[in-house]
Design a protein around this nucleic acid. Structure first.
Ligand SMILES: [Mn+2]
Ligand SMILES: [Mn+2]
Ligand SMILES: [Zn+2]
Ligand SMILES: [Zn+2]
Lengths: 142, 142
DNA sequence: TTTTAAATTGTACAAATTACAATTTAAAAA
DNA sequence: TTTTTAAATTGTAATTTGTACAATTTAAAA
């Protein structure tokens, strides 16, 4: 299975020990594409790892975030969500369905980068600009 | 006190009953300028209204949000924060200090509006674009 | 002044997350 | 390969951030 090898390499490169729990959590995140919560991730991964502890999922996700291989994202709803896509991108978000999708747009990124290179913000060292694009998905599958 | 009159008018205009708790919560939000959490607001307002219930603060803030005179804002940290500035603006945010400041920029707003007018996003009806500008405040008062 | 719908309060409950001590395990060292 | 050890996992309890609900009080309309 090539996919598991890639995940193992990603964990290794981040300096993390390889455990079945970590492999399964990362695999679940990558396959989900829905920016799942910790609890959703726990439910999914429990299928393949019975006896998995919810605490472990929180620990694993936190380790991933601390080591930069997963990002935390927050919406208007209750829980934190986790994003295995760490290259620069933004999010489309629908408040009524709480659905969130990736939005990659290099042209927009160039535009923003240029804008903020010229316009310095007094007293603030800018590191990153994130857009939250709020609206409605038209094919609201339900 | 002119300020209280303005707050009373704002509540009236929104169709809300005038109560000491609501006046004090709105006054606290406006004076704070820090996008405080419900719990911070409860601590501040308790000074002037002893016996105030935390539940009331949640109720009042929720009524303000439902009636459009306050916005909820979220960060990557734990709790929701409340913003009495409801005209269009963005936020500067420092992750290490969890500090958040307003960023008004009509030029940027025009740029973004123009960009998204030309570039339609397939399957998504866009309603609003907000920037979270992440970085470090240089005068980190501490 | 009376009436009443809405606001406030206290308590209990809930969801999401964290703390911590005991146990197990990955992987480095021998 | 076996031993060792620091780190990961687990279960439990606690904490944080709220929400639900019934009883009481109150703003403001009549
Ligand atoms: Mn969850
Ligand atoms: Mn709080
Ligand atoms: Zn994403
Ligand atoms: Zn603001």
């Amino acid at each position: 299975m090539k996919r598991v090898d890639e995940i193992v390499k990603k964990l290794s490169d981040a300096g993390l020990k390889i455990t079945p729990q970590r492999i399964a959590v990362m695999q679940s995140l990558v396959e989900a594409k829905t920016h799942p919560t910790a609890e959703e991730t726990y439910r999914r991964v429990s299928q393949s790892i019975p006896g998995l502890s919810p605490t472990t999922v929180y620990n694993v996700l936190d380790a991933f975030v601390r080591n930069g291989i997963v990002n935390k994202v927050k919406t208007d709803a209750g829980a934190m969500r986790y994003d295995p896509v760490t290259d620069n991108h933004h999010h489309l978000y629908c408040e009524s369905s709480d659905r969130m999708e990736d939005f990659h747009d290099p042209e927009l990124d160039r535009l923003l980068e240029e804008y903020f290179q010229n316009k310095k913000i007094h007293g603030f060292r800018l590191k990153d600009v994130k857009l939250q694009i709020v609206g409605e998905f038209e094919n609201s599958k339900k």
